[in-house]
Design a protein around this nucleic acid. Structure first.
Length: 598
RNA sequence: GGGACUGUAGCUCAACUGGACAGAGCGACGGUUUCCUAAACCGUAGGUUCCGGGUUCGAUUCCCGGCAGUCCCA
């Protein structure tokens, strides 16, 4: 039984027949208030015009005799301060420990959702501006999956539009034979830039030629279609290389082009319903009544725009998947656009919950990221630099551990012949992998640890922070707890790469304040995941994990474990093991790797 | 001109949706390694939560009016 249910029952006992709605029991803001607090006596007192302290007293009275609580106090204007019993705490820890996925509730079982994120433009390389949608979207994806939702991750590529006329023309006339043969995204990008520049020439000849190629493509010309297909395949290949590094996986890659054939029907329906009307040659939906301006669904030249393609996309997804909701992770500039077409979709009768998760703009040195500003750092370069910095530290650390005071890793009998360990061979491939895990983890965490809506001015040092509130801090805490558990179990490495820390026998027995604070915090894990999902903010989970790791570090520092007497040692190891599980599960939801040795 | 978002320590950010003394990281200063990984831990300094009203027992949080920054629309 949840604490909130117990306290709610006490309210009902004290005031029979009253409606208390959601009674909330939250962790105490300060340990001196106890373990948990409930402020709802104040709320109820206001509603019932009663004295809040009296309400508190009556509820406290009703809670008396309940062996969950060791102490129930009323403080200040009517706060209920609750101290739980050791027995309850130990049994809750034990329950959490035994549950799969550290007790994340399966709220989404049987529900399907679509998450639309990353969505880069084809024929261009990914750059730091793509990190946010990709990393935040991936974390939301993983969080919802962990809650039991059936998630379809869809990458809505920018794979259609005028840029392909420019590209095809450029491909035919501006690239060398060799470049055409070994076509890469970098070449495509170069080709686009050159061709686009020529399209701006005074005489307009090149521009017209590009336009002609585009029309041919749109009309299904075989050669152009084949070229377009090739561009897309090459682009996706390149994107996948980035996604592999970032641990991102999509279920589908349906770009804008996928919805081409659906758009005319959508527009026809809008006209039929009287939603879309002619205006200056274009077809528009008037949303002035909702203060959303006017949305164009067919331009005066007959072309469609994003509003139309997004509506076509919703139609397709609803018909094919019938999801409970669709989540779009895009930058905040598109808020008006999403409000507009969400409104139109509702008018068309779509009841699927549509959610826009906007994230703040990324700038670099105070300027918006753009080709024109020339401040476009390629994602590949960022990841390479992240790896390079992590590798320098990994190797430096390995070198300093190999010499100096004593052997940090005493030889272990159980270790297989020829095994390499951290601190022994500074430049084996294991270091490369580790540097990737740490460097990429730093990049992801630096983004995920902030509320998505925050604007970010990119800086190398911030993105690649390795200390303090950073990804590596959490990875380090994990490596230490793994190391501890390995030593406790006699040094077996478990080097199969299994993310779970070693299981520990025995039972929970929380005694000291440091243990208790960590224990109470660990119990909050499922709640933190739920809150992160409800708010569509991975930062909620990141923040929780950081706080948890801090409490663990503090506990670790103050409490000897391996050298404690057997009962204490066993109890502390249980706590360490649970911490390790929570941390690796949580970091997994953020898409951050958890190496067992650093 | 209309709208959205943001404004909290020197800097970067939290604050579980109205709770108790606004917390972390970085930076600064000072401590902790014969001891389980010092990428760590402990301590000190640092605040008119942009400003002014309002609602409330209680406001960083909600409402109104300003100011500033970013963005979107026309």
């Amino acid at each position: 039984m949840e604490l909130s249910d117990i306290v709610k029952a006490a309210f009902e006992e004290a005031y029979p027949g009253e409606d208390f709605g959601g009674v909330r029991v939250l962790p105490a803001t300060d340990p001196k208030f106890g373990d948990y607090q409930c402020n709802d006596a104040l709320k109820f007192a206001k509603k019932a015009h009663a004295n809040p302290r009296e309400v508190g007293a009556k509820v406290a009275e009703a809670l008396k005799g309940n062996d969950v609580f060791e102490k129930v106090e009323i403080a200040g204007p009517g706060f209920l301060n609750l101290t739980v019993s050791g027995g309850w705490l130990n049994s809750r820890l034990s329950t959490l420990d035994s549950k799969p996925s550290c007790g994340i509730p399966q709220k989404g079982a049987g529900k399907k959702i679509v998450i639309d994120y990353s969505s880069p433009n084809a024929a261009k390389q990914m750059h730091i501006g793509h990190i946010r949608s990709t990393v935040i979207g991936c974390a939301i994806d993983r969080i919802f999956r962990s809650l039991g939702y059936d998630v379809i991750a869809d990458n809505h590529l920018g794979d259609w539009g005028t840029q392909f006329g420019i590209l095809i023309k450029g491909y035919r006339e501006l690239l060398t034979d060799e470049e055409r043969e070994n076509l890469t995204v970098a070449n495509l990008e170069k080709c686009y830039v050159l061709s686009a520049a020529k399209a701006k020439e005074e005489d307009g000849v090149w521009k017209d030629a590009c336009r002609a190629e585009l029309v041919k493509l749109q009309q299904g010309d075989k050669d152009n279609l084949a070229l377009w297909k090739r561009f897309i395949d090459i682009s996706i290949g390149e994107f996948d290389r980035m996604y592999a590094k970032l641990g991102v996986k999509f279920d589908t890659y349906r770009g804008e082009s996928y919805y081409n054939d659906t758009m005319p029907g959508v527009v026809a329906k809008l006209q039929e319903m009287g939603l879309a009307v002619e205006s200056e040659g274009a077809l528009v939906v008037n949303l002035e009544a909702e203060k959303l301006g006017v949305a164009i669904v067919r331009k005066s030249d007959g072309g469609y725009n994003y509003t139309t393609s997004d509506l076509a996309c919703v139609k397709t997804r609803v018909e094919e998947y019938d999801p409970e909701r669709i989540i779009y992770v895009t930058d905040a500039r598109q808020q008006l656009h999403f409000k507009q077409w969400f409104s139109i979709a509702a008018k068309m009768g779509y009841t699927t919950k549509l959610v826009h998760v906007p994230f703040g703009l990324m700038s670099y040195q105070g300027k918006a990221i753009s080709t024109r500003e020339g401040n476009l750092i390629k994602l590949d370069e960022l990841l390479a630099e992240a790896k390079r910095r992590a590798l320098a530290i990994v190797q430096d650390r390995a070198a300093s551990m190999g010499k100096g005071a004593g052997m940090p890793y005493p030889p272990r009998a159980s270790e297989p012949e020829g095994a390499t360990r951290r601190g022994e061979s500074p430049s084996v491939p294991a270091d490369e992998t580790l540097a990737e895990q740490i460097g990429y983890g730093a990049v992801k965490y630096s983004d995920l640890s902030h509320d998505p809506i925050t604007d970010i001015d990119f800086s190398w040092d911030k993105a690649l922070a390795l200390e303090g509130n950073s990804g590596p801090y959490l990875q380090y805490a994990y490596a230490r707890v793994c190391s501890l558990l390995e030593k406790a179990s006699g040094g077996t490495d478990g080097g199969s790469g299994a993310p779970e820390p070693l299981p520990v026998d025995g039972s929970f027995l929380v005694a000291t304040p440091a243990e208790k604070r960590l224990a109470l915090q660990l119990l909050e894990f499922p709640g933190a995941v739920v809150r992160a999902a409800e708010a569509y903010k991975p930062s909620v989970l990141a923040d929780y994990l950081f706080q948890t790791a801090q409490l663990y570090s503090s506990f670790y520092q103050s409490s000897p474990i391996l050298k404690s007497e057997p009962t204490v040692r066993a109890a502390r190891l249980k706590l360490c093991s649970l911490f390790g599980k929570v941390l690796s599960t949580g970091l997994g939801l953020l898409g951050i790797d958890t190496p067992r040795h650093i």
